[in-house]
Write a protein that binds this DNA or RNA. Structure first.
Lengths: 207, 207
DNA sequence: TGATGATTTGACCGAATGGTCAGCGGCAGG
DNA sequence: CCTGCCGCTGACCATTCGGTCAAATCATCA
């Protein structure tokens, strides 16, 4: 039984190929809709060979998800209490949007998992994620109390940032077809629009 | 071969039960991840009986999607050129949010279809949806030119409204677990937050 | 070079999948 | 009461599914 983490060069290469192919397939069809044959074909390996590196379909899925959560929360963790509050949150939004641009498959994998009821990451959502949100919401509340941020609901502010930024990854096709363009152009426009929207929302009004 | 639209009372009842069950299952697992046995069980019918009313799994899916698109676009169609621009768009946002609250399964079905590459509704996205967006974007541009709306990118404004409102249906579980609440409470809070955000974003600044 | 373990695969398995079909029961109209 | 059709089902089918295994091949190093 090979260890889940690669030890030899060839194990590293194949494990990575499998995870990459699995990300491709799972992110599009969800766990139940994806098949091992599909993943094997994308990875350029035979199905039994997949199962030589991972004991089951679910193990591949779990391997993807467990690595994903930390990556996904990193931008929010980087929301620091030093710096100008409005710009801090704008930076967070831009980091999140950049994640959607660079890692759309990861975003879709996450979306698929949530849509299916988050059976494999519910504890992390109720644990790590909730704790992190509580923490950052407290920080935002402090900023508001100091008058450095317009009074907004901190949690729904975060929800809206997640929603707007991930939309460009998850609904990628819709965005491109409605705009009638291809490539990364929507992200540049989105950066401008979202910067404008959140600046208007968050800038405190002296009165 | 029974016609797709019910003619007798019993056909109406069963067709509706099937579509309702299929909506339940498809919206959670996507087309490929859903099974006829699952739908049959939820509908309280036998699998062959499903296929007495619909010729195939795909036919059920198509029946759901074709009915969905019009319902889904109705709120945007109702964006009128009379009335105060800011309040018109706020009303649209609230209608969309109300749709998420009342029809979360429809929202998830749509999200699943887009995630999987929109194989069955791509033409409608490039056709009806794009045309509608172009039309309403022109209206918004007019409002901006008249100084009755802050200058924003109209299409990305619509994207952000879709994203934020549908988020409460599609990521329902995450929202509830992170907030630590159950029921419709998030929708009331979201209405307040989003009203505040879009009012701040859209209200023109006299200078 | 030979030995040894890592890697790969064809053949296969039982279960689940979408779908078919002959026929049964019941109900409506004559 | 008979007839005929609508609604429904159990049994079945071919394919695909996740997964196993023995055997073949490959790579490495003594």
């Amino acid at each position: 039984m090979p260890s889940p983490r690669p030890r030899t060069r060839i194990q590293a290469r194949n494990s990575e190929a499998i995870l990459d192919a699995a990300l491709e397939v799972f992110s599009q069809y969800g766990f139940r809709g994806a098949t091992l044959d599909q993943i094997a074909e994308v990875a350029g390996l035979s199905k039994p060979n997949l199962l030589y590196y991972f004991p089951s379909k679910e193990a591949i899925h779990i391997a993807l998800l467990s690595g994903l959560m930390d990556t996904w929360l990193a931008p929010l963790r980087a929301l620091h209490h030093d710096g100008e509050p409005v710009e801090e949150i704008l930076d967070y939004m831009r980091r999140k949007l950049e994640m959607s641009r660079l890692y759309p498959r990861e975003s879709r994998l996450f979306a698929n998992e949530i849509l299916q009821g988050a059976p494999r990451i519910l504890d992390q959502i109720e644990g790590d994620l909730k704790a992190l949100v509580d923490d950052k919401a407290a920080l935002i509340t402090t900023w508001i109390a100091e008058g450095r941020l317009a009074p907004v609901d901190p949690r729904h502010l975060l929800f809206s940032i997640w929603a707007t930024t991930q939309h460009y990854a998850d609904f990628d096709i819709q965005v491109h077809r409605v705009l009638g363009v291809e490539g990364d152009a929507p992200y540049a426009e989105a950066t401008r629009f979202l910067t404008q929207m959140y600046r208007a929302t968050l800038t405190p009004q002296p009165r």
